[in-house]
Amino acid sequence: MNRKLTKQQCLDEMRTLVRRIEESDDNNACRLLDEFHHNWDADLFHEIGRLTRDLHDTLNNFHLDSRVAAIAEKDIPDARERLNYVISMTEQAARRTLSATEEIMPVSNRLGQSAASLKSEWVRFTRRELTPEEFRGLARCIEEFLMVITSDASHIHSSLIEILMAQEYQDITGQIIHRVIRLVQEVEDSLVGLIRVSRQRILPAESGKEVETALEGPQIRPVDRPDVVANQDEVDSLLSSLGF
């Protein structure tokens, strides 16, 4: 029996209800309450009920899913620090590569120029155009050139090793970025989970999954961690204490 009531009718019925309760007329009070209930829009009741349940579930899920809190408090700042470390490592690698390249470019230019000048003299020599004095000069130049090559080749070699070692950043930063990607994936899963609980509850296990922590990968600030070695010397002394 859905019927719309005016404000006055509402007040009258409420007063009647209060009177029935005061008179301990339980039967009539209950009947009146039933009527009120039916008079409210059933859909609105239903909707409010659903929203209340969803709100309850969402709040519950926030409390239950401690992983969300851990992500916000620890993992996100940690990821920020890791990404800053990636920036500094890539910058350092670029600087090492550039400075090694800058060092050997003039060396290779000098070698090229010396070889070109020797070549023109050598051509004259093969055409028998050199005087004995010029020939002695050429022999001296060749001897000097060979000595320069020996030392420059070793210089170029050490710079190439420096460039090679600088590429190490790719492995280390790659590991760090992989970890941050895993975290982003986890944040995404948690957000999707929260959206889903606004419709229905999900199993806490789905979003509360722990990231594997057994292997920590590259250390950003090993000096702050007594359980972590800071350099190869500390590895060596630890191993030697184990009889290595």
């Binding site: 920590e216 190869q232 191993l239």
Partner: peptide, 25 residues
Amino acid sequence: AEAKREQIVEAAQAGVNGYIVKPFT
């Protein structure tokens, strides 16, 4: 790149002959 002491010990116990931490020279 694994630099935790307990991991180095674990590797030693598993029978590793040498251990280098990255970055290395």
